[in-house]
């Protein structure tokens, strides 16, 4: 049932991470590693996962910070399970407050981890994550819906991506280079489609909401108003 579910495992101890990954791989999960929080965040930004497993104490960025960023900056609603040796109630509270869905204390039985992963995967993404309210707009990142004044519009994936980047930097201006870097890793197609995508996104929003949502700042870039 959960075969081929993609799991991101962020754990600083490579031996422990390897042992967990080997077990999950035998059960049919696809497992990606990251050995610190910063690397984990990069993987989460660039890949789609069905579930994430985080350690808490890690170099560069700890698991709590990573989970917080996942929920509040990437608006990612995938289930998150903390796998850690920190066993106090305070530690667990901090984990759930950061946005975790489950908490498993080391040492643990891998079978239990597997059962918990199954339970979390069966529930699907969290419904309370991914709703962003900014500049009068309400954005549902899970369903790519944007609402304003009782009116709603569904965006395409790339349009949603562009809007997310602009909203992330609101109210600042975002340059073309920044957008191209974020969307195409700095290597946009030769047809230079950014302008077209922006034009279509702007038109979609203006027609739906009867107001200007994206403004072009001459020689600088684009800005949410």
């Amino acid at each position: 049932m959960f075969e081929k579910s993609q799991v991101l495992l962020v754990e600083d101890n490579d031996e422990l991470a390897g042992s967990v990954a080997d077990y999950l791989s035998v059960l049919g999960y696809g497992v990606d590693f990251a050995f610190n929080g910063a690397a984990g965040l990069q993987l989460l930004e660039s890949n789609q996962y069905d579930i994430a497993i985080f350690d808490v104490a890690m170099p560069k960025m700890n698991g709590l910070q990573l989970c917080h960023k996942l929920r509040h900056e990437l608006f990612n609603s995938i289930p998150v399970l903390f796998l850690t040796a920190r066993d106090t109630l305070e530690d667990k509270k901090a984990g759930f407050q950061a946005g975790a869905d489950d908490y498993l204390v080391k040492p643990f039985a891998l079978e239990e981890l597997h059962l918990r992963l199954q339970a979390l995967l069966s529930r699907g993404p969290r419904r309370d994550i991914g709703i962003q309210k900014i500049a009068g707009l309400t954005i549902d990142h899970n369903q790519s819906l944007v609402s304003y004044d009782g009116k709603q519009v569904r965006l395409l994936s790339l349009q949603m991506h562009i809007l997310t980047i602009l909203l992330k930097h609101y109210p600042n201006v975002v340059s073309r280079q920044m957008l191209e870097q974020a969307i195409w890793d700095g290597m946009p197609p030769e047809s230079n489609p950014l302008r077209t995508h922006i034009y279509r996104l702007r038109a979609t929003l203006e027609v739906a909401f009867e107001k200007t949502v994206i403004r072009t700042v001459y020689a600088k870039g684009y800005q949410i108003v």
Binding site: N13, E15, L16, S19, V20, Y23, A85, A109, E111
Partner: peptide, 12 residues
């Protein structure tokens, strides 16, 4: 941590 690794490997 090493206990977990041993337990995990035994499970595998």
């Amino acid at each position: 941590t090493p206990l977990s690794i041993i337990g995990n490997c035994v499970s595998l």
